[in-house]
Amino acid sequence: MSFLTLYNNLNTFLYLAAILFGMGVYGIVTHRTLIGMLISSELILAAASINFMAFNRFTAPDPTVGQVFTLFIMAIAAAEAAIGLSIIIAVYRNYKSVDTEDLVELNG
């Protein structure tokens, strides 16, 4: 088992996706602005896409299914980014801030 044949191994991609997912979770918890949380959620979506593509390459009988799913994930992520950013801009217009600590109007 050489380091140079890692790209032929399913587990490499699964570990990489797990680490990216963990980074996304860390970023969502620690970021203080809504835009930072959106960026971290993009990392989580990328991790999910890598998992789809890895299983598509190594185990699935039909190698188009995972690619189709990943393309759908991309479309959903684009829609999510558009909606999320417009919400962020609307919030900024009302509160003059996108810091999560300032958005406490529903805080009972």
Binding site: I35, A46, A77, A81, A82, I89, Y92, V98
Partner: peptide, 19 residues
Amino acid sequence: LIYVGAVCITIAFAIMLAA
């Protein structure tokens, strides 16, 4: 094309507008 070219640039615009 989609992530680097569209999503990240949109986020950069939102940072310039709102942060």
